[in-house]
Amino acid sequence: MQRFTYTQARSAEAVPGTGARIIAGGTTLYDLMKLDIETPAALLDVTTIPGLDGIAFAGDELVFGALARMSDAAEHPEVLRRCPVLAESLAKAASQQLRNMATLGGNLLQRTRCPYFRNGAHYPCNKRAPGSGCAALEGLDRGHALLGGSEACIAVYPGDWAVALVAMDATLDLLGPRGARSLKVAALHRLPGDAPQQETVLEPGEMILRIRVPVGPIGRASTYHKIRDRESYAFALVSAAVALDMEQGVVREARIALGGVATRPWRVPEAEAVLAGRRLDRALALEAGRAAFAAARPGRHNGFKVVLGTEAVADAVMIAAERSQRP
């Protein structure tokens, strides 16, 4: 790790002008700095900014301060009750130690686990070294994307929380050099295209202040279903965030997003459409699962995720539906 300066911010307004790299919990950035993959010359710690770590209801919205810790939101009783998909996406990520460190805003920006990216200069990687090529395309792609990949990059977006937020149509409040703006979480991450090094639409110095989630009838019957190589403390092989609005066994509205299989949080309206207006049983849930993976382009070692993901979506739909029966 090369040298850098470290400063603590006292207010959000002071952040955009500094030119420094923002660090929050540091669980991604410091990790990648230790691997010499991130090499910022200056760090600005934003976790010292007061007032951005709350979790509250405001009208029909659940508002998360960007500096709230993952563990706070994962166990917030109202979040658990009114929108379990959000809480579960956090509780099933990382470990409690890391959830105590990582922030809700920073978590959205975690970077891929692609080993060719993380292992440094021995391996070509367009995301780490633009123009060097993508070793994963013809390589060990068991953990790589079936959806949203390009000729330049098939690295998976590894997060869980963003997948749940995309399913829930969440919005970000940002503060940047050009002032404040709002952005759908669904619009935060870019497809890799021919510039996989550009992962989000955030401008340099732009900071996430808040995450707003509309919570209506569709929050309660929701779940985050995550299939991993071990029972805990692992990234998703495939995950499904599902939220349903049901009435007497019929799906009024469905939201489905996928994790672990796409280059960014992946909403699947095709699968949602399968369910909408129809009486739910497992066969229909499976049909939605198949629709979710209809566009999948498997590589050499990840084809099993089409079947696995289809079943995981179907299971998630059934779990969410069961929750709609709860009082």
Partner: peptide
């Protein structure tokens, strides 16, 4: 080549 990706059993296993 790390303990996140070389998955050894954790307590929940």
């Amino acid at each position: 080549n790390d303990l996140a990706e070389y998955v050894v059993p954790v307590n929940a296993d």
